[in-house]
Design a protein around this nucleic acid. Structure first.
Lengths: 131, 131
DNA sequence: GTATATGCAAACAATTTGCACGCCT
DNA sequence: AGGCGTGCAAATTGTTTGCATATAC
């Protein structure tokens, strides 16, 4: 029950920098490929472990995209648009979301077919028990 | 390139009925366990195949919940609330979503820590190419 | 010195698929 | 009869983990 003292490792720093260097919401595998350019014998396990640490520390976000996880160093509140044709995941500014309806989206070039919202938190039942 | 003519099988009907019988957003595995009560030697592969068919036909929705898929026979537009403590996935009416802010959610007993929105559709780039 | 991190490989869990047979239509 | 559907088991895929060693502090 005591807080782990994180170390400042080359691997963790490089992994963070890779995530921060792009807005394409990369997967662990893509990050691994990039990281190998700098640390040829880095292992995929290390990439996964460090991504998890960075998420826990709130330095990056994990986005659930089908069966893969994607990662995002943009931790300001924003949403995503997933293209059903090419699979790309775009950022949508929080304010901009209000305007994403069929008409306005169309003008911006997006066709919105569907939307999916999940709120995270504590449900009434658990709020009672935890108290 | 010709449309598949679906057959009306016992397995598919039972699987649909199981999904429709609950609002707990079951996983493929739970559905499989229930289905075995009616068809003891049904296979998990069949459950997965039929769930996919039902999703394609628009009869049920697939909800991506971490690394598992959950299924929902309520196909009217609605959203979800995931409890970070017990993992339950609750339905949130579309209208109700507008009122889920920290104050009002609190009164209903929900604590909202985070929210996650994904829009699905066709992106500007693809809209150009597809024409 | 000591606890955290790493590389490697094996283990996992959810889902998909190839195949031979079965059964709607 | 013909083709879609099924059961079974093996294969795939994304991710996690155990272990011995390396390294940050």
């Amino acid at each position: 029950m005591h807080k782990i003292k994180r170390r400042n490792t080359q691997q963790r720093n490089i992994i963070y920098d890779i995530v921060a260097s792009t807005n394409t919401h990369p997967t662990a595998d893509w990050i691994y490929e990039q990281a190998k350019k700098q640390i040829p014998n880095i292992s995929l396990g290390t990439v996964y472990r460090n991504l998890k640490v960075l998420v826990e520390e709130g330095k990056i976000l994990e986005i659930n995209d089908g069966k893969v996880s994607r990662f995002d160093a943009n931790i300001s509140p924003h949403h995503h648009f997933k293209c059903e044709n090419c699979g790309s995941l775009y950022d949508i500014e929080e304010g901009e979301l209000l305007y994403i309806n069929k008409d306005i989206a169309q003008k911006k070039g997006y066709t919105v077919n569907n939307s999916f919202v999940v709120l995270y938190g504590i449900c009434p039942k658990c709020n009672e028990h935890i108290s």
